[in-house]
Design a protein around this nucleic acid. Structure first.
Lengths: 202, 202
DNA sequence: TACCTATAGTTGAGACCTCAACCAGAGCGT
DNA sequence: ACGCTCTGGTTGAGGTCTCAACTATAGGTA
């Protein structure tokens, strides 16, 4: 399921450096955007983006599943999110005529107003901390890199989100033997196996 | 506090395209890594990285605040995380001699074992979905881009995390008038003001 | 019609994160 | 010693996310 564990190709020093720069940049960037948006609009980015997708759709409304696809969200998460947004008065849900199990979410006027109010601050931060610190050339590069990563991931993620609705699994197990242990880095050791036992309550 | 809202520079179509590619790629990538690590080790990436930092430190131990800095985590979050990891038996906490209010976290043998077990699968996914889909040139570009973003963000994020400990605020208010409303996109309208009223319980 | 499966969406439990408040020791000035 | 402030770290409440189970309708097949 995870591919053969024997002889893992660890990251080189250069790769490690790039990897950590990337992770830290993304972490800081997202944290900053989220803080800013919460402060200004009392809403996390994930919710903001839901409103954005609705605002861009005809009639400012979308089927839940279409919205989930656009927002790259599991149906479960979207359901919780829309419930919260509905309670806040920013969206409303109603049934569809065609398919009686589906429901459509619609952006309310209050929701649109909040979006209008939040957008300038949000865009300003995005520009200031992403586009303004990159050259035009780097911006193009970032687009290409993002595209490549996403293309490789899309099928896997689509499947994972789809599994939200079904219950399908093929059992598979494998283990690989490792060598000796040393200092220990993010990616620098062989390994015996992989056994869960979640880090959780009780 | 948010800079002048008057005349916001919205994203161009090209910028919008890059922006969404980037966000989706990052979202999918992180989601994939997190799912994989949870499945294999019962632990979210954030926890995994804490163990990594500990494993790389002399004595496999660190002061909480040093660990927080390395992991780019608020002290609060780290405290909760280490509490969970301690309950799982992966780290242990004890007081320091020098400063009796500080405490140091140390990776246990069980923690190191879990790390060893988790590392191969994790690295394999990072390689497969990041480095393998990029050219060497793109990898370098990604490093440079990440560095630029992080440099611009570091002071702000450092300050934000520091504020976890204090309570400091300067009040400031501003509002800007906007124009007419249209279709509404992620970044395409003027705006009246920004008023919180969180999307939350009650 | 009855059954069987797939799809649309919701729900509850529990884990993780954020925010604000809090305790305790350190450091300094008096 | 006393008081004041700053720093290291924890705690509790509440919000969001994940996972797994669940309801209900749709669609196909006998």
């Amino acid at each position: 399921m995870l591919g053969p564990m024997t002889d893992v190709r660890w990251l080189t020093d250069d790769e490690q450096r790039i990897w950590r720069l990337f992770m830290n940049a993304v972490r800081d960037f997202n944290a900053h955007l989220d803080r800013q948006l919460r402060r200004d609009s009392g809403m996390p980015v994930a919710y903001y983006e839901i409103l954005v997708h609705l605002s861009e759709s005809p009639g400012r409304s979308l089927r839940m599943s279409e919205l989930a696809d656009l927002a790259r969200s599991s149906r479960s998460r979207l359901s919780h999110a829309v419930a919260a947004l509905e309670k806040a008065g920013y969206v409303s849900r109603c049934a569809t005529d065609a398919d009686r199990r589906g429901s459509v979410a619609q952006l309310t006027d209050a929701g649109f107003a909040v979006l209008e109010a939040a957008a300038p601050g949000h865009v300003t931060e995005v520009r200031k901390h992403l586009f303004d610190v990159l050259t035009p050339e780097q911006q193009r590069q970032l687009g290409a890199i993002s595209g490549a990563v996403q293309d490789g991931l899309r099928p896997i993620c689509a499947q994972a989100l789809a599994e939200d609705a079904e219950a399908e699994c093929a059992a598979g197990g494998d283990a690989a033997a490792g060598g000796a242990g040393g200092g220990g880095t993010a990616a620098q050791e062989p390994a015996p196996q992989a056994a869960p036992e979640p880090v959780t309550e009780s």
